[in-house]
Amino acid sequence: MQFAESNGIKLFVESTGTGTPIVFVHEFAGDHRNWDDQVRFFGRQFQCITFNARGYPPSDVPDDVEQYGQDMAVEDIANVLRWAGAKDAHIVGVSMGGYATLNFGLTYPGMARSLTIVGAGHGSDPVRREQFLHDSAELADRLVKLGMEEGIVHYANSTIRRRFKEKDPRGFDSFNRQFAEHSALGSSLTTRGYQMRRPTIYALADRMATLPVPTLIVAGDDDEPCIEPALFMKRTIPDARLWIVPRTTHAVNLEEPEAFNRVAFDFISSVDRARQG
């Protein structure tokens, strides 16, 4: 196993292939394994770097909620790049990882060749904000009290997963088996320290308006909490593209891996060609 150190925390890292690096950043319910289809595809031409966030074994699981947060997620990506000896990379993230990807680009634009932000925006709607915080606190409590397997049942079967379950039952079951293997403590503290404290997409408007990094924004058309934030990012980020994926919910890279790989590849390749020109 290989580990990158990030401010005293060890992060499990895998690197596959050679070439321009791409860093893949997983969602709350996922880990580095969620990117297997992308690593197999992109690893033919790129260096693919995946890692487990803090709180996700075999990465360290700090027991202090103050060791979890948006700023730390950004620094963790930066330190994974430093571990790889890369001065910059394409950054691809889903959901929680999409938030981290956006904030990484805002904080370290010189280290981001491009940003691909997938399914980011949950908790941003001001009308539903209090409900999001309430539901997140309940989830954090359930994980510690019941353990992962029982604690995730409601979350894993929510409406933002329904198309995945319909289209790929076997993949959906595998995803949830992996989810259930996570640390209950790490997932609970991630919810409280990161998910519930991060700025909403709308709160980042002024910073996004000056973001100089080419950005691809992706959302499933049935992932309702993410559609308006995706449109907002498209309208606010100067060099942004938007792809809305039909009959798809949250984890687009898992629900529609072939389409996702093709669109992301075309975007990343076009960015690299423009840099060379």
Rank of each mutant, 00 (worst) to 15 (best):
R207T: 13
G85I: 01
G147R: 09
A180H: 09
K10T: 10
A100C: 02
V218I: 13
N34V: 08
V213F: 02
A264W: 05
T18R: 06
T101R: 00
D141V: 12
T191R: 00
D76L: 02
A205R: 15
D60G: 12
I117W: 02
V23S: 07
V271H: 03
A180K: 03
H154K: 14
L81N: 07
G43C: 08
V80S: 01
V13N: 00
G277R: 04
D272R: 07
V23T: 08
F51V: 01
G69S: 11
P109S: 06
I160S: 00
E66L: 07
S15F: 02
A89E: 00
V92H: 00
N253G: 04
V61W: 01
T210H: 10
V13E: 00
P126I: 09
Q276F: 01
T116G: 06
H154Q: 10
S158I: 03
S270I: 01
F46Q: 07
A137I: 06
Y99A: 03
P212Y: 03
S174M: 11
P199Y: 08
D222E: 07
V218W: 00
P257T: 03
S158Y: 06
S269K: 12
D88Q: 15
P57Y: 15
L185R: 14
I77H: 00
V61A: 06
R142D: 11
I160M: 10
A203N: 15
G220H: 04
E75W: 11
G69M: 05
A274P: 05
E256H: 12
R142I: 01
R128V: 11
F46C: 06
G69P: 02
R82K: 11
F51M: 04
N52D: 15
S270K: 03
I117A: 10
M233A: 14
A219E: 00
Q67F: 08
P21F: 04
S183Y: 12
G97R: 00
V39Y: 10
R40M: 12
L133M: 11
S95R: 03
Y56C: 09
Q45I: 01
N103E: 12
G105P: 07
R170T: 08
D71I: 14
L216S: 01
V263D: 14
